[in-house]
């Protein structure tokens, strides 16, 4: 295939992955076209977060079978930073604290990492993007002089994930339970940030346990993962059904 014929999508094929000897993903199949956001739901401890971590190359997980193709290219052999430079972005469920490194400094380095050799992130590019991102998130500029996530509240950490997302302009996002621990106001800010990026150049997964976030970021498709497999897929109405009926009926699907 030539470059122009590559499908613009993430394709997950029969993905099996383990932590140590413990299998967690047991054959996940998913296609997420660029331009669409898909929700991944399911009971806790069934592989949702594992799927996110495996996609971005967390070395704690071992892929034992299957493949992940981004725009037709297998990424399994790639380091996490190569995947990031291809346009993948994970909003972490538990963002990590890096003391002594300001958000501003970090964002510049991360933007620079995406540039061709010899090409510099200009001040105007950086500052322009930053202003608009902060406005979208309703955040004061002083935040970028603070150390990365150090001493941040849960809500601030999640907001910071979205700030990075806005600055780095990924093509595929994976949001790992970004809604957990957020109050309604913070949830709206986060959703506002994601929605501002939506369009034909953005695809991805929104991993969540609850319907709540999906009231603000309406997914194109909803998939339910139970025991390491996608057991059902549908439209946004599927999320609503989970919300009203709970997860018991899908657990039965998995054992059926």
């Amino acid at each position: 295939m030539t470059q122009t014929e590559q499908p613009h999508q993430i394709e997950i094929r029969n993905l099996h992955a383990s932590v140590g000897d413990l299998p967690i993903l047991k054959g996940v199949d998913l296609i997420i076209p660029r331009g669409e956001l898909h929700a991944v739901m399911g009971p806790n401890g069934n592989g949702k977060s594992t799927l996110a971590k495996v996609m971005v190359g967390d070395p704690e997980y071992t892929v034992t079978d299957g493949d992940i193709l981004v725009d037709g290219v297998s990424i399994l052999e790639m380091e996490p930073d190569e995947r990031a430079r291809m346009g993948l972005f994970l909003a972490f469920q538990y963002p990590v604290e890096i003391p002594g490194v300001t958000i501003a400094n970090f964002l510049r380095l991360a933007m620079q990492a995406r540039k061709e050799e010899g090409e510099e992130v200009s001040f105007t590019e950086f500052y322009g993007k930053l202003q608009s991102a902060l406005k979208t998130l309703d955040w004061d500029e002083s935040i970028v002089e603070r150390y990365l996530n150090a001493g941040f509240s849960g809500g601030e950490k999640k907001r910071n994930e979205i700030l990075q997302m806005l600055m780095l302009e990924p093509t595929y996002i994976i949001m790992d339970e970004t809604d957990s621990g957020l109050d309604v106001d913070a949830l709206k800010v986060v959703a506002n940030g994601v929605n501002s990026m939506r369009g034909e150049n953005l695809g991805g997964l929104i991993i969540t346990h609850y319907q709540r976030l999906l009231d603000y970021i309406v997914p194109d498709r909803v998939h339910i993962i139970v025991d390491g497999k996608v057991v059902q897929s549908g439209g946004p109405e599927l999320a609503k059904k989970l919300d009203s009926q709970g997860y018991d009926w899908v657990k039965e699907l998995a054992t059926a």
């Binding site: 971005v56 190359g57 967390d58 070395p59 704690e60 380091e79 996490p80 930073d81 995947r83 990031a84 430079r85 972005f89 994970l90 972490f92 963002p95 990590v96 890096i98 003391p99 002594g100 490194v101 970090f106 380095l109 991360a110 990492a113 995406r114 150390y147 990365l148 990075q164 780095l168």
Partner: peptide, 28 residues
């Protein structure tokens, strides 16, 4: 490893990530 992974997931190489963490450590 979580710090390295976090920074790598934003596009920094492993060496860059470690360097940045060390720089943060001595920043004060």
């Amino acid at each position: 490893d979580d710090q390295i992974m976090y920074l790598q997931s934003r596009g920094l190489s492993k060496d860059q990530a470690a360097g940045l963490i060390v720089r943060g450590f001595i920043e004060p």
